[in-house]
Amino acid sequence: MAKHPFRRRAVLSLLLAPLLAITEASADEFPSRPARIVVGFAPGTGMEVSTRLLADLMAKELGQPVIVETKPGASTMIAAAQVASAPKDGYTLLMMNNQTANNVLIYKKVPYKNSDFTAIAGGGIVSMVMAVSKTVPITTGREFLKYAKENDGKLFYGYWGAGGSPHLLAARLASSAGLNLQGVGYKDPGQATADLVTGRIHLFFTSVTHGLSLLRAGTANIVAVGTPQRLPSLPDVPTFAESGIEGMPNPWWGYGVPTGTPPAVVQKLERVIKAAVNSPRYQAMLASTGSIPMPVDSPTKFQEFIDQDQKKWAAAIRPLKLELD
Rank of each mutant, 00 (worst) to 15 (best):
P87F: 12
P293Y: 05
T118S: 14
M248P: 00
T135H: 14
I222N: 03
I120L: 08
T70L: 00
N221E: 14
G199Q: 03
T23V: 14
Q82G: 13
T193M: 11
F240M: 05
S243P: 10
G199R: 05
A17G: 07
G247M: 06
I306L: 08
S32G: 11
A174K: 06
G158I: 09
E242M: 11
S279N: 02
F305I: 10
K60R: 14
N221A: 14
K311V: 14
G254P: 07
I106P: 05
P293S: 02
G190I: 06
E323C: 09
A171P: 07
L57N: 03
I273G: 01
L214Q: 12
A119S: 09
Q99R: 07
Y147I: 01
L214P: 10
V208M: 14
L19V: 08
K113M: 06
V126S: 13
A10Q: 14
A35L: 15
A121T: 00
P232D: 10
G153A: 10
G73D: 07
Q64L: 07
G161V: 12
G226L: 09
A35W: 10
L173A: 06
T300E: 15
T198D: 08
V237Q: 04
L203M: 15
K274A: 03
E304H: 08
T140K: 07
V38Y: 03
P280W: 06
L212I: 15
N98R: 00
T227C: 08
G211A: 12
N278K: 13
A241T: 10
F204P: 04
Q310D: 10
T45Q: 15
Q229S: 14
M285P: 00
P232F: 10
V11M: 14
S85H: 11
V66P: 13
L15I: 15
L20N: 06
G46M: 13
L14V: 15
G44N: 07
P166F: 05
P238C: 02
K301Y: 00
A10F: 15
P262T: 07
Y282G: 02
V136F: 10
Q303Y: 05
W160K: 04
P249R: 06
R33C: 01
V277Y: 05
A79W: 13
F302W: 02
K154E: 13
L196A: 01
Y255S: 01
T118W: 12
V208H: 12
Y147N: 01
L54K: 02
G183E: 15
P5E: 09
P263S: 13
V129C: 09
A314H: 13
T92W: 09
T239W: 06
G153L: 12
I201Q: 05
L234H: 04
P299G: 02
A17D: 01
R7F: 15
L16A: 11
F305T: 01
G73E: 06
P293T: 13
N114Y: 04
A316N: 04
L19E: 00
L155P: 01
P189I: 05
N114T: 11
P43L: 10
G90H: 09
I317R: 09
G244P: 07
P319T: 12
E304Y: 01
Q229P: 00
T209Y: 02
Q99E: 11
Q229C: 00
A315E: 15
E270Q: 12
V257A: 11
L234V: 10
A287M: 03
